[in-house]
């Protein structure tokens, strides 16, 4: 019998601190599918916020920390398209810039083994039906980095379509950015809010109970706006939907 796939969970600093339920859900889905999930406790943050705000020197230590923590694992999974995007596409650049070619090579190698959750489930495990049940109407926001930096394409939708009881409603203009953009939300707050307003209008137009995505940062932004409007639409991470079962529907 083949060995159970062993997966290192990179939970991301945001999920760790503010959205632990997303991390727990990720663990639940992976374990249900027979994976052995490991949480390397030395992990902290991928450094994406530093890198995208221009603090490349400050990010070097974070890249080194990530690479050192995760390089011994065959598969690394995170419930975030943007963190995986940074790991795959930016870490080696940061190391090169710091003149550390060795670290850059190690970062590139780790990057090839780091997967966003839907990528891992569909491509590595070959699963679209994860045995979930979620009797709600859901509009899915694909998020920019999952869509474009990673090219996850239809994978999250394929997973959602296999969830029992779930009714997927197409989100108009789904490929448009929600306006989060990390420090953009603060540096260009007015533009960010204008984008958020349009995104919320599109979400509300679907009449869905739930707006889902696979990045907690975008969900924090969209959810913060919907909450302020008291719109009655919940934001839920893809992992939480996939973790829900008939026994334990949230």
């Amino acid at each position: 019998m083949p060995r159970r796939p062993r997966v290192a969970l990179f939970v991301t600093c945001l999920v760790d601190t503010l959205f632990p339920d997303v991390g727990k859900a990720t663990v639940a889905v992976l374990e249900r599918l027979g994976c052995e999930v490991v949480f390397p406790v030395k992990q902290t943050c991928c450094g994406q916020a530093h890198i995208n705000t221009g603090y490349h020197r400050d990010a070097v230590g974070l890249v080194r920390k990530f690479v050192t923590t995760f390089e011994d694992f065959d598969a690394i999974v995170a419930p975030s398209g943007s963190c995986i995007g940074s790991i795959r596409h930016q870490h080696s650049m940061i190391a090169e810039k710091a003149g550390d070619g060795g670290l850059a090579a190690r970062a590139r190698a780790v990057g090839t083994r780091a997967f966003e959750l839907s990528e891992y489930l569909v491509d590595q495990l070959g699963v679209t039906d994860v045995g979930a049940a979620y009797p709600h109407t859901v509009a899915y926001h694909p998020t920019c980095h999952s869509l474009r930096a990673l090219g996850v394409g239809e994978r999250p939708l394929a997973l959602l379509r296999s969830v029992r009881g779930l009714q997927l409603i197409e989100l108009p203009n789904g490929d448009q950015c929600c306006g989060f953009g990390g420090t953009f939300a603060v540096k260009n707050a007015d533009t960010s809010v204008a984008m958020l307003t349009d995104k919320m209008t599109d979400v509300l137009s679907t009449g869905a109970e739930v707006c889902a995505a696979s990045d907690s940062s975008c969900l924090m932004h969209i959810g913060g706006g919907l909450s302020r409007l008291q719109a009655g639409v919940r934001t839920v991470h893809l992992a939480e939907i996939l973790a829900a079962t008939e026994d334990a529907a949230p």
Binding site: F19, A189, G225
Partner: peptide, 24 residues
């Protein structure tokens, strides 16, 4: 500077327990 966030968005409720605390 984070005030710009809460002009139009609520900030999330911090959980009682971080993920790593739960894991431990």
């Amino acid at each position: 500077p984070l005030a710009a966030w809460t002009v139009a968005r609520d900030a999330p409720r911090p959980p009682a327990q971080t993920f790593r605390e739960w894991w431990a």
